[in-house]
Design a protein around this nucleic acid. Sequence first.
DNA 1: ATCCAGGCCATAA
DNA 2: TTATGGCCTGGA
Length: 312
Amino acid sequence: MTMQLEIGTNRLSIHGVDAFDLANTLTCGQAFRWWRVGNAYHGVVKGSLLVAEWRDESLHVEDHSVTKLCPDDFVGLVFDYFGLSDDHAQRERSLCKRDRIVAEAIRYAPGIRILRQDPWECLISFIISARNYIPSIMSTIVRLCERFGERVSSDEYEELFGTRRYAFPSASALSDGSVESIESCGASYRAKYIYGMAQLVTTGGADLDLISKQPYEEARESLMSLYGVGPKIAECVLLYSMGRYEAFPIDTWISRVMRFLYLGNPRASVREMHEFARQRFEDLAGFAQQYLFHWARTAKGAYLRTLEQNSR
DNA sequence: ATCCAGGCCATAA
DNA sequence: TTATGGCCTGGA
């Protein structure tokens, strides 16, 4: 199937996108800056305010930013962010052949893509996500953006939807704040990590662009050397913002799936889980993780919790 | 109401 | 190298 583009004024329609579920892709826990409004999703992506909707078998995206992108940049942003040039159907087929549990997860909810997010926003967002609910994560990020970010919504958008949107704050904007001001946005004990990170990145003590070019293991170590960043967050950054699809972030849900459905060992170590995932899923581990994560939380949530209870 | 969450750090063995 | 407690507080 070939894609067809239709480009209008600050709007774009893409027909013939295969293996793409917009709703699940935006709400499956990889990004925290999308809101459902009617049948559409409103989100801030790298300083642009986008309104995305899946309608008539096509993806429609509008640019509602104050400063709108030129058509080329707009198309580029959308293709890059959603990974539209990738043959995702082929990935799904390949994963289905490799593993029958992942095959079930894909059958349950196909078309989940890995978004290509901004590394800085991704890093801070997943620091905030530690021991936190998704709604809390989102509201903390909103408050950070309101306090430290720049306005991104156009006059027309604000009039139409009655709300103002802000871009994710830069490192230097956050470093101009303080631990206390970040804490009061709801970041809690994570505020010191965030403020420290903002200072480090602003002064050049950490270079995410450089890290993104390092070999996988080296990049992972570089990220984990940052105060407040452990294996889970490092791998989320690698997967969701650096296109490292071999990454396999292990949170409590993936841990349950691995311990009870794959390894049959309630006390399996994170190391064992990583080893297994690397051998089984190889270069597509990140996609396997995303499908398993969504399936575990929604379709298998109660079941996995029961297994966990019974193993105690 | 309580109760605990999509980890990380420090400390201890 | 692996195990444990503490962090803190907005939501369910």
